[in-house]
Design a protein around this nucleic acid. Sequence first.
DNA 1: CTTATAAATGTTATATTATTACATAGTGTT
DNA 2: AACACTATGTAATAATATAACATTTATAAG
Lengths: 135, 135
Amino acid sequence: MGISKIDKMHSLSKNQQIIFDLIDKSPEPLKAYTILFNVQKKGIKAPPQVYRALDKLVEMGKIHKIESRNAFIACHNSSCQVAKATAFSICEICEKVTEISSAGLSKYLANFKDKDGMKYSKYNLEFFGLCKKCR
Amino acid sequence: MGISKIDKMHSLSKNQQIIFDLIDKSPEPLKAYTILFNVQKKGIKAPPQVYRALDKLVEMGKIHKIESRNAFIACHNSSCQVAKATAFSICEICEKVTEISSAGLSKYLANFKDKDGMKYSKYNLEFFGLCKKCR
DNA sequence: CTTATAAATGTTATATTATTACATAGTGTT
DNA sequence: AACACTATGTAATAATATAACATTTATAAG
Ligand SMILES: [Zn+2]
Ligand SMILES: [Zn+2]
Ligand SMILES: [Zn+2]
Ligand SMILES: [Zn+2]
């Protein structure tokens, strides 16, 4: 019994699972050292273990890094075509971060060409403003 | 003679000018400690002096921070409405960064509303791909 | 089941990026 | 002069991230 082949292919390693669970349950983006502190009881003791798991999870599109905050949130948008196209709204007062899922926006950006006619394989967009509660 | 009132209002302080000049001359984004190293001969000796100048220059829209690279480039686009609306293309091989100035893009993003009809006061967009040279 | 390979982990140390805190100096205004 | 405000200088430290190397675990082939 146990885990089937195909499940295994998509499953996370032990550290990855621990760290993903923590991020996924969090209502707010988590920073690497906050994560480290919170998983030390589970045996993850050093920064490289955290950063390695984070790197893999980002690659897989399971989480995203909010670059302007150095923090990580779980993807709630079908893993965003494996992390190639991400957009977020960030409240400048309470720091609430929401992943934006807009067909129009992603279509517009995926097809955007610059002056030289160049198209890009990946983008990250961060909007800033005040959330409902903070207005 | 000297500096008129209005010129003074828009002029940079000594440290700000030194650091802006360095960034403005650079063909590539500069990191804070690279800047520090390069201005030590001019008497700027410690990180806070660099970070303070960078903060002000970003506020003024004279430079932008490339969040995914922790690096700074000079604005070549009328100071981007004082730093409220920025877009860049980043080459994932040579790390060349170019500020994108597209009326269509900035109009689209400035008017973008999310599901709740919320508009944002600010955004930063980073596109990734391969530049002409690296393709 | 062995062997080979790749992926993940554990651990120590260190590099890089950024801020706090506090003292001092300049600038413009009244 | 007195005040407020901005900028600067300096030392120490905090926060974020990676290098390097040893070991273990998982996957795939033979
Ligand atoms: Zn996502
Ligand atoms: Zn808010
Ligand atoms: Zn600009
Ligand atoms: Zn390139």
